[in-house]
Simulated scan of single mutants.
Amino acid sequence: MSPRLTRRARRSTLALLTGAALATLLSVTSATAAPLAGTTRGGVGTAAVADVWMKDHPDDVGLQPHSLNPIWESPDIKVCHTAVECAVSQNPIAGVRNYLFIKFRNNGPYAGPVVESGVIEVFRTPSSGGSAWPDDWVQIGWMAVPSYPGVTTVTIPWDDVPGPGHFCLVARWVSPNDPMTFQSPDIGVTVRNNNNIAWRNVDSVPLVAGGLVQTRPYTIGNALTRATRNSLVFSEVGAPLRTAGGRLVADLGPALYERWLAGGKAGKGIRDVGRNQIEIVDPAQASLDNLTLNPKEKLTLQLNFSATTVTKEPIAVRVTQIGPNSLGQERADLGGVRYDVTVGQRAG
C-alpha cells in the first residue's frame, strides 16, 4: 500500500474503529470458515501464495485480464441503509451511517485455496467515467480480515456520506502474498488486469409519473497527460425508457457545451434543445462525440430524467465514456454508470 493510502487507512481506523465500537461496527461472514492455526504470513514460517478475487461481472471467473463488459457493475459491492444486508444495492443516504457489503472469494485460478490475511479497502469518487487511479479516489474505510477458502462477506460502516449521495465505488483486497501486479492511471485498465480489485457504478433513479425531474451528476475525465477526444455513449438495458414515457436531457454546462460545438456538434440519436442542453432522443443508441478534454481535466454534466407513465418493467440506461486509455487504445471503455429507473404513481 502506498504511504498516502496508508495514512488514509490510519485516519479511517481512528474515525471508524475506535474502542469497543469495533466489535459492533464490523462483521465478517464466511461460507467455509476455518481456524487460522498453521497459517503464517509476513515472512514468518512458510507463507502460501493465495489468489483472492472479486467479480467484475456476473460471468467473471477470476481471470486477469478478461474481456467482459461492462466491468463497472460489480455484483460483489453493495450499499445498504442498515447493518442487515439488503437484497439490492441502494443509493447511500447523505449525512447518516450506511453500510458497505463486500464479497470476495479465495478460490482464484492462479493459486490453491489457502487461508490468507489481508485488508479490504473501499474508495469512492463522484459518478463518472475516465477517473484516474488512485488520484481521483477517496478512501471510505478499510478492514483487516482473514480470507478463508470459499466466499467471505465483510460489512464496513460508511459514516458522513457527502451529498448528494451519488458515487462510484471501488473495493480492493491487499495482501503481501496476493498483490496487485498491474498498475495504470486508468481505473478501468487497473480493474481489468487485477482480479483483487472491483468497481461498481450503479445509481437508482426513482421517478413519479408526471412528477419532478430527477437529476444525476456525471463527470467525464481524462486520466492521461495529453489532450484526448471522447464520446459519451448511451444504451439501454431491459425495457426502453419510452415504455414509461420517459425523457432524458443532458445539461452539459457552458464549458462542455462549447467543447461539443467546437467538435462539430457530432453525435447521433440526440437533439440540441438550447441552453447547453441536449435531449437524448434515442437512449438505446445515442452518443455525444468529439468531446475534447485537456490533460488531467474533469468536467461535470447533469442528466435529467422524467417520465409520464407508471410501469413495473425494469428500465436501465447506461452512460459510458469512450476514449483513449493508457494502453494506447483510442476507443476504450473508460467507465460509466448504469441508471436503474423506476416509475411510480403520484401520491394522492
Rank of each mutant, 00 (worst) to 15 (best):
G323P: 06
I77H: 00
F123D: 00
A223N: 10
E85V: 11
R10F: 07
D272L: 06
Y110K: 08
E73D: 03
D60M: 00
P254C: 11
R8Q: 10
S117F: 11
P3Q: 12
K55T: 00
V341D: 04
S128C: 13
P157W: 03
V84R: 15
R226N: 12
A266C: 10
F104A: 04
D135Y: 14
G188Y: 02
T311P: 06
A255C: 01
G238K: 13
K268C: 05
G141W: 06
G163L: 09
R346Y: 09
D56N: 05
A223C: 09
G267R: 01
E73Q: 03
G45W: 10
A284N: 07
L288K: 05
L261N: 13
L241Y: 00
P92A: 13
I322W: 03
R11W: 11
M54W: 00
L252A: 11
A111S: 13
T243Q: 15
V138W: 08
R41V: 05
W142K: 11
G108F: 02
T82N: 12
V145H: 06
L169Y: 06
V28M: 13
R200W: 03
I77T: 00
M143A: 08
A47Q: 08
N195M: 08
D282P: 03
S30L: 06
A15E: 13
L248D: 02
S184F: 11
A33V: 07
V170N: 00
H166S: 07
G335S: 09
G38H: 08
V191I: 12
Q139W: 04
N294Y: 10
L100C: 05
L63C: 04
P75M: 04
F182L: 06
E116S: 13
V317H: 01
P109Y: 11
P162L: 11
N91K: 07
N230F: 09
W199D: 01
A316E: 00
W173M: 07
V122C: 15
N107I: 00
Q183W: 13
V52N: 15
W142A: 08
T46E: 15
G336I: 01
S89G: 05
S27C: 09
A250F: 02
V44E: 12
V122L: 07
D60C: 06
A284P: 00
T29M: 11
D203H: 02
L327D: 15
V208F: 12
A250C: 03
A286F: 04
Y218A: 03
Y218C: 01
Q277R: 15
A286M: 04
G336Y: 06
K296R: 14
L22H: 11
I93Y: 03
S184A: 15
Q64P: 02
V61Y: 10
G221E: 10
G245F: 01
T40S: 08
A244H: 05
L169R: 06
R229N: 14
Y148A: 09
W72F: 10
A20T: 09
A20C: 08
Y339C: 04
M180P: 01
W260Y: 06
M180D: 12
A171K: 00
T190F: 15
T243P: 07
V343T: 07
D203L: 04
R8V: 01
G246A: 05
T24E: 14
D203Y: 03
V28L: 14
V273I: 15
P75D: 03
L261Y: 09
N194F: 04
L224I: 07
L100T: 03
S231Y: 02
D178R: 01
D56A: 08
L5E: 12
V122Q: 02
R229T: 10
V114R: 10
C168P: 01
E116N: 12
